[in-house]
Design a binder for these strands. Structure first.
Length: 424
RNA sequence: GUGCCUGUAGCUCAAUGGCAGAGCGCCACACUGUGGAUGUGGAUGUUGUGGGUUCGAAACCCAUCAGGCACCCCA
């Protein structure tokens, strides 16, 4: 142990069982994306630091990114997010892409943060965006993609909810309270932090930040008004589209959702698990204007969201929603009776593979009980036995490991016999 | 980057300064042409790592690494 080299802090190793979970998430993400016609894409995993320095905050670039000098002396960064790469890719082909662009991606990202439950330094993230259309109905589509995903993993609306708000609506309310435009960002951060603080402390914090008692009272009244959305044409249109898209059971209006990001300008949304141990967002996104402003393209509006695999994986495990792990993709084992008949078993695996059956043979002649135990532990469904008697008569023993029944069949009928069991 | 908690067998955890243990899992046998169940037997280990205190340390102290909780942040 002393000389064992550890993994880098905040990274995970994916043993086959964890890899199966990651792939499960990937498959569901892919299915939900494709159901709405989105195309898969990806960007580079390493980028120059300038790509992020342009738009992202100082905190991100200086403290929360994996940045280092390459051999040529350039500063490169392991990507902490995908949006800047997306913006550059869109800008580079802005004249030839067919808009609206609907793109999705699932890949690795890195952030130099303090690891905790639900937060690692290396993680996978689903990004999905629609670019070139600015409408509440487009916003609704992205929310519907998210809801479709939640439904596909059997997280029902009582377990996960997507909360929606609109920044323009909130800014109008801030204006009514006499909050100066330059204080909007501060106030947004206050709203963002409210759920994490004790009410009395939050009040003090707001007053400390320069708001009057009247403004504080007005703000609390706004944040308690769950009917506020009815004053916004964008949100009323959004909710009727969500109705038509069949996902309104997953969505709720909540004036407390703001999202920390600077670049959101309209609809914002965030999904939370409503009953679990994690108080972290499952996914979050919203509408942003001027995506291409910093990479030299024509102004382009878009809407999208991101979802990390870490929180999602924990939720799936805690809720028992992960499919049972099947150790091997081959459900048929051809046993090896003894050294003399070894090659007969190999020949049999070849014949079965030609017929499209995933099959493995035991890798050496050894006692049959050991081979059967192996098949059992690997949760295989069928074991074949080729002993002297079978070889002589041109037969094969097919044993159904699920119910223990076994039959001797002619060699030519083995595939048929196997398929009957596997398809049962 | 800050504070606190934790780290013992493959896993979950006991042992509070005096011989490092249990359950599960693992291996062997009962069973020489057949898995799961049962029974019997066996091995679990530099107590995260490095140092210190002590006659004696898994335990106390210091450092370090990792995980967790709360900050920070959440693009």
């Amino acid at each position: 142990m002393a000389n064992k080299i550890q993994t880098v802090k905040g990274t995970r190793e994916f043993y086959p069982e964890q890899m199966a979970l990651r792939n499960f998430i990937y498959e569901k993400v892919r299915a939900a994306s494709r159901a709405f016609g989105y195309q898969e894409y990806d960007g580079p995993f390493i980028e120059t630091i300038d790509l992020y320095a342009a738009k992202s905050g100082e905190e991100l670039v200086k403290k929360q990114s994996f940045t280092f000098e390459d051999r040529g002396g350039d500063l490169v960064t392991l990507r902490p997010e995908l949006t800047p790469s997306l913006a550059r890719m869109i800008a580079a082909k802005q004249g030839e892409l067919t808009f609206p662009v609907r793109w999705w991606s699932f890949g690795p990202f890195w952030r130099y943060e303090q690891p905790q439950k639900g937060r690692t330094r290396e993680f996978f993230q689903w990004n999905i965006d629609m670019l070139g259309v600015n409408s509440p109905e487009a916003d609704a589509e992205l929310i519907a993609v998210a809801a479709t995903f939640l439904r596909s993993i059997n997280l029902d609306p009582t377990q996960a909810t997507i909360f929606v708000n609109n920044r323009r609506l909130m800014e109008a309310e801030f204006d009514k309270l006499g909050i100066a435009p330059e204080k909007r960002l501060d106030v947004s951060n206050m709203v963002d932090r409210r759920s994490k603080m004790e009410p009395a402390k939050w009040d003090a914090y707001v007053l400390d930040s320069g708001l009057s008692q009247a403004q504080l009272d007005g703000l609390k009244s706004v944040l308690g008004n769950m009917e506020l959305w009815k004053q916004s044409e964008e949100l009323t249109r959004l909710f009727s589209a969500l109705e038509a898209l069949g996902v309104s059971d997953y969505v709720q209006y909540d004036p407390n959702i703001m999202r920390g990001l600077l670049y959101y300008t309209g609809t914002v949304f965030e999904a939370f698990e409503t009953s679990g141990s994690l108080k972290r967002a499952i996914l979050g996104g919203g509408r942003y204007d001027n995506l291409l402003a910093d990479v030299g393209g024509q102004p382009l509006s878009g809407v999208g969201f991101a979802m990390g695999d870490v929180v999602m994986g924990i939720i799936l495990q805690e809720k028992g929603l992960v499919p049972e792990f099947v150790p091997t993709p081959a459900s048929v084992l051809v046993t090896v009776f003894d050294e003399a008949l070894w090659m007969k078993s190999l020949e049999l695996t070849t014949r079965l593979r030609s017929a499209g059956v995933n099959v493995m043979s035991y890798p050496e002649p050894t006692k049959l009980p050991k081979q059967f135990k192996f098949a059992d532990k690997m949760k295989m469904k069928i074991a074949l036995v080729l002993g002297p008697e079978e070889v002589e008569k041109g037969l094969v023993v097919v044993k159904n490991l699920l119910n223990g029944e076994q039959v001797q069949v002619k060699r030519e009928a083995v595939t048929q016999s196997i398929l009957e069991i596997l398809n049962a």
